[in-house]
Simulated assay, not measured.
Amino acid sequence: MRIPKKTALIIGLLIVVGAVGLWLATKPAATKLAAPTAVPVRVVSVAQKDVPRFVSGIGSVLSLHSVVIRPQIDGILTKLLVKEGQLVNKGDLLATIDDRSIRASLDQAKAQLGESQAQLQVAQVNLKRYKLLSVDDGVSKQTYDQQQALVNQLKATLQGNQAAIDAAQVQLSYTQIRSPVTGRVGIRTVDEGNFLRMSDTQGLFSVTQIDPIAVEFSLPQQMLPVLQDLVGDPTRAQVKAYIGADTDGETGNLLGDGHLTLIDNQISANTGTIRAKAEFNNPKQKLWPGLLVTVKVQTALEKNALVVPPTVVQRGMDQHFVYRVNGDKVETVQVQMIDQGSGQDIIKGVKAGDVLVSDGQSRLKPGSQVQVLTEPPQVVQTGAQVQP
């Protein structure tokens, strides 16, 4: 059946009106623009205090005195009176060498000295008698002169006998090996009963001084004027030694506090560095010869310095800046970086007590509204849990 044109037009309009109504019914509601919200940040206050400034380098611990104990005469090692690792004092008896042959030589020299003394005594008595007789021409002048020469000869023989005794006593002293320094005994290389020779280069063992001890380190040649001032300062520059620390000294264990003692007399042309040495008291023996350590030398003391944590200062295109809280908003302040490291920065451009943003700067711009957080930051733990 054919539908009239007017009826078809009405049906089409009804379909269009229905589609529009359906679209309006299913259209999502328009979202309203959210009002600007405050940026959560954490803040710190600028502290003012005296801050020491340091320069760091890598150094090696070395003993002030380390001696290899060697025999000074040939002989059999009869006794070892110390143990490996034992602490000894200067002059302590360490070992003995067979001394029987030297004692026999000493006794022989003493006997010869006694014989010469007796001969000299007789010769001097005769000289006095000849002198009295020569006055009355009882003896010839030649006889008197010969007796005088005999007395002089016996005196020289007496001196030679005494020198032989002294030499034997020196040799005898070498049979008792004593420690030349206070220190710790190392690992021994011989046992009792071994025949020792003066030509042995290895020695019996070593004695190394542990307390006090030194650390030798190198610094860039640009530090030479500073080091010269520090060495000449009567207050003696403070030096700290760490193990397991980086060159900033922010980690690791402190092994000891010492003072700068000297700088080398020349700069290394190959490395452009200058060597220096510091001395440490080491009663707990934490510093050990040959140990590599990180050294921090105090070069200055910054009076009334403005100090902030390293996270506060931001790096701009050509300067440093910080975000300072002013009411509920922030403003940028250009600052000058004076010193960095050791967990704090020294800056200029702000005042003591100013409140600066220490966390959350990535979402800030000048004039941003902030919300200061007081609770500590949450630690997010990652990793899958294993089901039982």
Rank of each mutant, 00 (worst) to 15 (best):
T31I: 07
N265P: 00
D107F: 11
Q361P: 01
R70E: 14
A19Y: 12
L364G: 03
V312R: 06
L132S: 13
Q228P: 01
A109F: 06
Q108L: 09
V215N: 03
D229S: 14
A156C: 04
V61S: 10
R2E: 11
D339R: 10
I97Q: 04
D248K: 05
F217G: 03
K5I: 15
T208I: 11
R188W: 02
K296M: 14
Q119V: 00
L150A: 14
A109D: 04
V190Y: 08
A29R: 09
E279L: 10
A305I: 06
D339N: 09
L9W: 12
W23V: 12
S268G: 02
L219A: 09
K110V: 06
I11V: 15
V215F: 02
A164L: 08
K240F: 07
T143S: 14
G91E: 06
I97E: 03
L219D: 08
K155F: 03
Y130S: 08
S116M: 03
I267H: 01
R178Q: 07
D107P: 00
M223F: 12
E375Q: 15
G138P: 06
T247I: 15
A278E: 03
L22K: 09
A237Y: 11
A35W: 02
D328A: 11
W288P: 00
G349K: 11
I76Q: 13
T271F: 00
P366C: 02
L93P: 02
Q117R: 09
K329P: 00
T261E: 05
I243E: 15
Q298A: 07
P4A: 12
A109M: 06
V39H: 02
L120I: 01
T26E: 09
Q48H: 00
I347W: 06
T7K: 13
D74P: 05
L356P: 07
G85W: 04
